[in-house]
Amino acid sequence: MVDFWQIIQNAAIELISPTTAAYALAALGLAIHFGYTGLINFGQAGFMAIGAYGYAISTLTLGFPVWASVLVGIGASVVFALILGIPTLRLRADYLAIVTIAAAEILRLIFTTNTLEAVTGSADGLSGYKGGFAALNPIPPGNYGFGPFEYNAYDWFLRIVAWTIVIIAALLAWQLMRSPWGRVIKGIREDEDAVRALGKNVYFYKMQSLILGGVFGTLGGMIFILPRAVVPANYATTLTFFIYTILLLGGAATILGPIIGSMIFWVLLSAVSGFVARAQAAGWFPGMSSVQAGQTRFIIVGIVLMLLVIFRPQGIFGNKKELAFVK
């Protein structure tokens, strides 16, 4: 029989999981790019990969402490944003899309190639970089919590740190978007020539936006690897598309949207794939193998993304009128 209580519990765990926080941060970065500035960044997976590898390589190969590894990741992300932005931010929006997606793939290929195996671990990736972070944990060892939310000290520490960063990032973005800076940014989304004619250095603002949103993605990438290992295959284009789904689910030009969107996305995804897997095991879907049951989640995400854009482009939190992309 299908154990619905277990499915619900498993889904509830996703509500505050570090992965949810990581995707929320990356989606918030994308909200700054796409929702507020109108930059079509299809390389958010690349920014996340830089966070992951920047942190892991600094820790493992260079033996840096946590704070320095974080700074290296952020620094690398800024450099990546500059490399992407300098040639493309003057071009039409769709060129940026293609160049960012290409750049993210280039990064993934570089992280995967055997040539740099000693540093990147090639296709097998990296692990064993969590010690420094775990050592910072002030929570005494033991298990805490209730129901599905019972974790050990490391897991709680990770969750607290992850969500604190999400909240700080959200407050930062919120303050920026209600300032004159945010007004310029939103103006650029509407018509950059008009903003240029008003004496604003559009190129510079777009670059700032690209860097800021990219750094959020990079921080998300660091949180993403703390409960797991760094594996290059995780940073494929599909990751970026998942983040777009989250963003559009919540609302592209909103601050809360990406965060709640990430929670809804992961809870629903866990519930649906949990249900399909268990129902398949219980023989509810004759003709479906367990491997096939696992693949249905991607099909569902794809269909949800299409339906969202067509029927509720403003997302859950978006103002019907303030669509990021009615053109």
């Binding site: 693949q295 249905t296 995400v301 794809g302 299409m306 067509i310 992309f325």
Partner: peptide, 25 residues
């Protein structure tokens, strides 16, 4: 329906995901 070009592009991304994994299925 008058859907804009960028939303259309994102629809094609969703379609790509759904169709690709349907093939795998």
């Amino acid at each position: 329906k008058g859907v804009g070009l960028i939303p259309m592009m994102i629809v094609s991304i969703g379609l790509s995901l759904a169709v690709r994994y349907t093939y795998q299925y």
